[in-house]
Design a protein around this nucleic acid. Structure first.
Lengths: 196, 196
DNA sequence: ATTGCGTTAGCGAGCGATAACTAGCGCTCC
DNA sequence: GGAGCGCTAGTTATCGCTCGCTAACGCAAT
């Protein structure tokens, strides 16, 4: 299903930048064309509509988030270390390309276009399922405490990470996300593993 | 500073409904006027601009969230029970008026208007400060474990509650928010208090 | 009581700006 | 000589907002 041309890639990349700068309202066909240095109709040679551009962007993210699924399919009892490594690497990716956080955590923004909202919901659900699998296995291995539900833990983990990234964005990327993320993960480990 | 007329209240209420239905893009002066049953210019008799309507709505929420500050100013060592009661009552309020959650947790939506983003940031910061105060005092009282930072705990609590509400909205308010909230809070208590 | 006046809250019409998008022509390169 | 890709110039729709005007009310002076 993938197979973007160079031009399409450039269009999607710059669209993400525009969203990061001024929110979804900053992404207009005009702005996008100007930024790339072509006319508006030129964009329609590469995407049939503006919605298709956004769908392409989301596909990109959906693909990129397959990493965790892969990880947990490779082992029966994925360690917390693996999970932590995955989270840290994700945060590092955000730090390298801060603009993508404006898109990946802003589901509210895609309302009114059902195809977009559905795709976003799918991505979120898959993420939660992956996390749930890891946690459940960790509980089975006795690595993770079992006196609280794994579902509840996904709420804690996903929620706190999302909020951390939100705060990072709202402060203008004014702190070291990966560093703070490591702190958060350390805290999660303290809370979620059996205490000695 | 407050002192809204009846008409202004109606306008703000219906604006929140419109946002809840179709996101911020669903809130247009036209839609709002049609919904209330007056002409567009009539709205400008009551608010100087659309932005002023949104500012009014945020003021409303800012005021409503003073409850927690009050609570913690009344006692030196606010108990976890008080905090929990406050959270549950907040979730109950959401359940009574689900539409407000579309506004209160959708900061990303107010980009491009600096007055709006600043106000939203203020509300969030105040919330965190209140929470931090409660947690720090709880640690001082020995009620809350001290081997993880209170700042980190605010991230956990705020983040998980926000995500819970987000999931609630995305499922079309398809579960009992207060009930799930009680479960979440119970889990937080298990994790954050000293274990026996 | 009536006249006159100010205020409030409404109206239809329409402003300029901008949105997403399209029709059609031209150039270049296999 | 198509196919691919760009352009100028336009479309229709909608945005927030303003225009001039009016119906209805309270109220003081005549």
């Amino acid at each position: 299903m993938e197979g973007w041309t160079e031009r399409q890639q450039e269009i999607m990349d710059q669209a993400v930048f525009l969203i990061a700068e001024n929110g979804i309202q900053g992404l207009t066909v005009r702005n996008l064309a100007k930024r790339i240095g072509v006319s508006e109709p030129a964009l329609y040679r590469h995407f049939r509509s503006k919605t298709d551009i956004l769908l392409g962007i989301l596909d990109h993210f959906a693909l990129a988030s397959e990493g965790m699924r892969e990880m947990l399919s490779r082992t029966d009892c994925p360690s917390l270390e693996q999970l932590e490594a995955f989270l840290v690497s994700t945060l590092k990716k955000f730090q390298e390309r801060p603009e993508i956080t404006a898109v990946i955590f802003a589901e509210e923004i895609f309302q009114n276009e059902p195809r977009l909202t559905e795709k976003v919901a799918n991505i979120m659900r898959k993420h939660q399922e992956s996390l749930l699998t890891v946690l459940t296995r960790g509980q089975a291995c006795g690595m993770i405490r079992s006196d609280v539900s794994a579902e509840g833990m996904t709420l804690l983990i996903q929620g706190s990470i999302r909020l951390l990234v939100s705060r990072w964005r709202m402060t203008g990327y004014g702190f070291d996300l990966a560093e703070e993320g490591r702190g958060l993960i350390e805290m999660l480990r303290t809370l979620l593993t059996h205490n000695k």
